[in-house]
């Protein structure tokens, strides 16, 4: 049947376009994690000024909208002679936005480690960095993972917004394909949704696996 051929053809072209979406996802997620961990830890810093500065960053990026941030970075920064390519603008906006949300998760995770555990590590004379690496982090990450997994899904969905500054990701290519093939609108969008669903699900199951590993030994 011609129809199946056609669907397959659309699918292949969309999969090709999802390369951009996937690389954007990975780069932005990595950067967001770095930002989240640094800010999450700084939110627990004993210096009030540092906490205030990081808190300000977190609240500004949580309190305004991702698309507004993306537009600001892409359309306003050039007026300050900071001209970012579309991909970079997308990465920066997404990482700053989800980094802010995840910082809160990281902070809560570290706070959740009982102080008795830290005392036990001290009684065994761990150095501060050993204490972090062997005792605090493995217990904190277990609390963080479900929340970070949710943020990961949100981030993947958030990447679709870069199509609105013209980056040729999965969404953008779909919209362009549709204008050429109005009759296939339904199929195209269904396929785009399915691809996003597949990408999200892969990352979601990845996080489920990590959660399982972090939960070893727990009831």
């Amino acid at each position: 049947m011609i129809k199946i051929d056609k669907i397959l053809n659309i699918l292949l072209r969309l999969i090709d376009a999802s390369k951009v979406t996937i690389s954007l996802t990975i780069v932005a997620a990595l950067l967001a994690s770095v930002i989240a961990f640094i800010s999450g830890i700084l939110l627990l810093n004993r210096h009030k000024i540092i906490r205030f500065l990081v808190r300000t960053y977190v609240e500004i990026f949580r309190g305004t909208s991702l698309l507004v941030q993306l537009y600001w970075i892409y359309f306003v920064l050039p007026f300050f002679s900071v001209e970012l390519p579309k991909f970079t603008a997308g990465v920066v906006a997404i990482a700053l936005n989800y980094g802010a949300y995840s910082a809160e998760i990281v902070r809560a995770g570290f706070l959740s480690v009982p102080k008795e555990q830290i005392e036990a590590a001290k009684a065994l004379n761990f150095t501060p960095s050993q204490k972090m690496r062997y005792i605090i982090f493995p217990q904190a990450i277990r609390i963080m993972l479900p929340g970070l997994g949710n943020q990961m899904i949100e981030l993947i969905k958030g990447t679709a917004l870069v199509s609105l500054i013209g980056l040729e990701d999965l969404t953008y290519s779909g919209v362009i394909m549709r204008t050429n093939d109005i009759a296939d609108t339904f199929i195209i969008f269904i396929l785009i949704l399915v691809i996003y669903y597949a990408i999200s699900s892969i990352f979601a199951s990845g996080f489920k696996l990590l959660e399982k590993r972090a939960n070893v030994g727990r009831a």
């Binding site: 008795e116 555990q117 005392e119």
Partner: peptide, 9 residues
């Protein structure tokens, strides 16, 4: 310690 404080992980 009274509450053992073993490392649960």
């Amino acid at each position: 310690f009274q509450q053992y404080n073993l490392f649960p992980h």
